[in-house]
């Protein structure tokens, strides 16, 4: 029983940073732009959040700084792909390199510095509920924030004008033009907002989850986020479930090891990726057919040679 609770609770804790990244990627892809730089935005968010948290002592300011750092990097992606017509894949990876370089340049002096990040805060009453309370309500504030962010993103995408414009940009951009909106502005806004969310995810990693900064600490979570969005068929609600699933796969290894089971951590680490590949292979055609039409074009477009 305690193993299950540990895994579930660890899944929520560890899945939250991925979830922020994937929510950001959802917004971006709904507008028709895939952003492999999500990994980079999370890195920027992790370092930005860490620096500000260390310097000001406020984790909330840290989270905000992380978000802004993530948004800044994504704004560059938006500029390159929306205005300059660069390949979305190449631009995303380039920005990952930029983030790797910037964070190691500016983060070197912060490696090993102590930080007073978000600490666990048990929600009164709710946290006493057996299992559910432990899993959901004995967490850090950024986890609670994500409980609000998920429905907010859903509402934003499906109930507001901004969301309608984002979805139209991703489904049939010329319809935006016909109605006098700028496709470029809508896409740039969505991509930047996506980076903002990914930045929070990165900050969650450095000032709530690990309470440390080290080079390349995101280590693939941003890429998982990109894959997760497809896995979740571009729905914020499903992104939440998927992120927890990934978090649990990550938590399972340490939970088992803590109990003296001899498990191979790397086999467990591979589970989320293999799982995603398997799900994509099984859902493949169905998923692809329900993807935003403009995004489909990005995937189908041959790289220029």
């Amino acid at each position: 029983m305690s193993l299950i609770v540990d895994v579930l609770s660890g899944g929520v804790r560890g899945g939250t940073s991925i979830m922020y990244g994937a929510l950001g990627e959802t917004v971006s892809e709904r507008a028709g732009v895939i952003n492999l730089g999500t990994e980079g935005s999370m890195l920027m968010g992790a370092l930005g959040g860490y620096i500000v948290c260390v310097e000001t002592g406020s984790p909330w300011l840290g989270a905000l700084a992380g978000a802004l750092a993530g948004a800044a990097l994504s704004l560059l992606h938006a500029y390159l792909v929306v205005w300059r017509g660069a390949s979305q894949f190449a631009s995303g990876l380039t920005l990952l390199f930029l983030a790797l370089g910037l964070t190691s340049l500016f983060g070197a002096t912060y490696v090993g510095k102590p930080v007073d990040g978000f600490s666990r805060w048990d929600v009164p009453l709710l946290s006493d509920i057996p299992v559910i309370g432990t899993v959901l309500f004995q967490q850090d504030p950024l986890v609670y924030l994500s409980f609000a962010v998920v429905p907010f993103i859903w509402w934003l995408l499906f109930k507001t004008r901004a969301g309608l414009l984002i979805r139209t940009a991703g489904e049939r951009s010329e319809s935006l033009t016909v109605h006098g909106y700028s496709v470029k502005a809508v896409r740039a806004g969505a991509v930047t907002a996506g980076g903002f969310l990914a930045g929070i995810g990165g900050a969650h990693l450095s000032i709530a989850y690990a309470n440390a900064w080290f080079e390349n600490m995101v280590s693939g979570r941003g890429f998982i986020a990109v894959a997760l969005v497809i896995f979740a068929v571009w729905s914020p609600i499903r992104v939440m479930g998927g992120a927890y699933l990934f978090g649990m796969a990550l938590a399972l290894g340490s939970a088992l090891q803590a109990r003296g089971y001899n498990v191979n951590q790397f086999a467990l680490d591979a589970i989320p990726f293999v799982l995603t590949l398997a799900v994509l292979a099984l859902l493949g055609k169905k998923t692809v057919s329900s993807s935003p039409a403009e995004l489909k074009k990005v995937f189908e477009n041959a790289p220029p040679t």
Partner: peptide, 15 residues
């Protein structure tokens, strides 16, 4: 399955 190779090759890197 119509899975885009950019996504699958990326995931296979981690595997």
């Amino acid at each position: 399955a119509g899975v885009n190779e950019a996504i699958s090759t990326l995931l296979l890197n981690f595997v």
